[in-house]
Design a protein around this nucleic acid. Structure first.
Lengths: 166, 166
DNA sequence: CTTGGAATGTCAACAAGGCTGACATATTCT
DNA sequence: AGAATATGTCAGCCTTGTTGACATTCCAAG
């Protein structure tokens, strides 16, 4: 039953299986953001701030335009978040060296501290999930997620993970 | 190097691996919601409407309180969304049979059509990802997602997937 | 029967964080 | 010199989350 031409079972492609995957994504993403959200709420920041901090940490010196592309929001939206982070002394914006129109973004010491706190919390949940599921499951997890991305996002993602710091 | 007491490699639990998983979740979730978002934008609905429609479809006759617990929002927030769906004739709200304080929620024919359109789009991307990654990867994907949920969410999730329609 | 509590709905106000459009400024490229 | 680029900013709008207050309706305990 439901055997493909190559004799391989395609039961994992039924609507029922796909629906389970969809609902798993929904609930898991809530868990994924829950811990940072709690920390951020105390400091009256939101997810938008977290995302900005995360990617500035990942690519220190990145420009505003780069960040816009990674986050997929408008400059007005990002600017609001960025302005508050700069005012609060978590992010530093330096005029570009070669091209003075650009602003290079860096985390300050305070910014790095918050980044640490947030990513520790998020990593801790991830680590627990990984440990529970085991290495083979983790490999599959990443494969499916990568296949689920849009082309542009996959490029962003690969640029980050391959070219990332060692 | 990095071998546990049982001789099993723990390299998949390094901060680097965890960070990749975190970023994969971020980008994949964008892809996950992209197709429904496009359809919803045309009809001037948002993700909140999609979520309500999805879970009413999954559990026809569910009460408002049930839906609140599943979605994790306040009744006021849900009520706004629900009201517009009822006004537009996508959702029907019937007074409860045994307990008349409760409202039982159902999709109308029109509501079912939109649900179909949305879930077709979302399933299509899921199917493509599943097919690319293969059945073993899918099993791992689900395992990690389930391990990532909060207790309450996992209960919600299991109640849905186990007790769900056949 | 009355009263307390539960479930629901509604109104108002507010905030975060998306969006668009328009415009200013500085800088670089042609 | 003029066009294009990168950024910032102002104003206004939308969705979707929040809290607080209050009305209604119904069930169940006293």
């Amino acid at each position: 039953m439901a055997e493909g031409a190559g004799g391989q079972s395609l039961l994992f492609l039924t609507d029922e299986q796909l629906r389970k995957g969809i609902e798993a994504m929904f609930f898991a993403y809530r868990g994924f953001t829950a811990d940072p959200d709690r920390i951020l709420a105390e400091k009256s920041y939101g997810r938008a701030h977290h995302r900005a901090i995360h990617f500035i940490h990942r690519s220190p010196g990145t420009t505003v335009n780069n960040l816009l592309a990674t986050l997929g929001v408008t400059k007005q939206s990002l600017n609001r978040v960025l302005r508050s982070l700069i005012e609060d002394g978590l992010v530093e914006s330096r005029v570009g060296r070669s091209d003075k129109r650009e602003r290079n973004l860096y985390l300050t010491t305070t910014g790095q501290e918050l980044e640490r706190e947030l990513s520790d919390a998020q990593r801790e949940r991830m680590r627990a999930a990984y440990r529970t599921a085991g290495p083979e499951a983790v490999a599959g997890f990443r494969q499916v997620l990568e296949a689920m991305m849009d082309e542009d996002m996959r490029r962003q993602y690969e640029r980050l993970t391959e070219g990332g710091r060692k």
